[in-house]
Amino acid sequence: MIFELDSKKLDFPHPSYAEKDGLLAIGGDLSAERLLLAYSNGIFPWFSDDSPILWYAPDPRFVIYPSKIKISKSMASCIRKNTFSISIDQNFDEVIKSCSSINRKDQDGTWITEDMIRAYTALYTMGYAHSVEVSQEGVLVGGLYGVLINGVFCGESMFSKVPNASKVALIYLAQEIDLQLIDCQFHTAHLESMGGEYLPLSDYLAILTKDLRYEQSL
């Protein structure tokens, strides 16, 4: 059953009511309050310019346990060469805009609409959204962004302008930041190759909501 949200009422149905494809609800808004409520309950928005706001809660969830991230021999060699410099929360605007504009295989467009950019930039300003930036010779060449809730980093998107840049960002996130879990949301072969695995929604929610608190820094 797909629920229709009232933009004047700040609530969500329980994520266990989502459809098989993860779709839970439609409508509402992208206010900071609604987004934080959504993420703290295992729900996230995913939609395109020509559709209403759609809210998802996939079961099972695709995640990476930081301690289980897989680093290939070629990636380990790349990291040892110190080809890239890495920073956190130094260029959120450019990271999210790059994620929205990068060409992706088998995708005609982007779900990162102008409304989404404004909404997540507001969360970043408030300290709830974060970015990892990967630069080469002073130029941003890759990175990722997401929302941090209770030690769970809910990854929204990543990009690479040169080989391995987004992988470096993800590895840095897993190894250098104290996280319970990296929420990848949906399966991709790329994320599976780096250690992604399925986690039942009930287990995901148990991790997410244990001693629930909003976190504002990495």
Results as ranks from 00 to 15, higher is better:
G42T: 04
K20A: 15
I182Y: 01
L23P: 04
L24Y: 05
L5W: 04
Q107E: 14
K161R: 14
Q136R: 14
Q175E: 14
A206V: 04
A174S: 13
F12A: 02
S166M: 09
A119V: 07
W111G: 08
M194R: 08
D183M: 00
D106T: 07
L199D: 05
V168Y: 03
V134M: 11
K97T: 13
D178G: 08
L191Q: 06
S40M: 00
G28M: 09
I88W: 07
P66K: 14
E156M: 11
H187W: 09
H130K: 13
L36S: 06
F44A: 03
A174L: 04
V132N: 06
L201Q: 15
Y39V: 00
N41I: 00
Y204R: 02
P15H: 09
M1A: 12
G22C: 08
M194F: 07
N164Q: 13
D29K: 10
G151A: 00
I26C: 12
Y39A: 00
Y204P: 11
G127V: 07
G127K: 11
L35M: 12
N82Q: 15
L181M: 15
R213H: 11
Y39W: 02
T209L: 05
I182E: 00
V134S: 12
K210E: 07
L140M: 09
G109C: 05
I149D: 00
S48F: 11
Y39G: 00
E133V: 06
L191D: 06
E133M: 09
D106Y: 10
S40T: 01
F92Y: 14
G127R: 10
A38Q: 02
C78T: 15
P52R: 08
V132T: 14
K210Q: 12
A119K: 07
P45F: 02
Y145W: 08
S217R: 14
E137V: 05
V95P: 09
I112F: 05
S77P: 01
W111V: 12
D29A: 11
L218S: 06
G196H: 01
L212E: 05
I207F: 03
W46C: 12
Y145H: 09
D89A: 10
G146L: 03
L37K: 01
T125S: 15
A174D: 01
L23H: 05
R213S: 12
D6Y: 05
Y65S: 10
S101V: 10
S7Y: 05
A38G: 13
D21T: 11
N103W: 03
I117D: 04
M194T: 09
G146H: 01
I96Y: 04
A165H: 04
M126Y: 14
R104H: 08
M126P: 00
K105P: 01
V95M: 07
D11T: 13
F47Q: 08
L205Y: 10
G151H: 00
V132E: 06
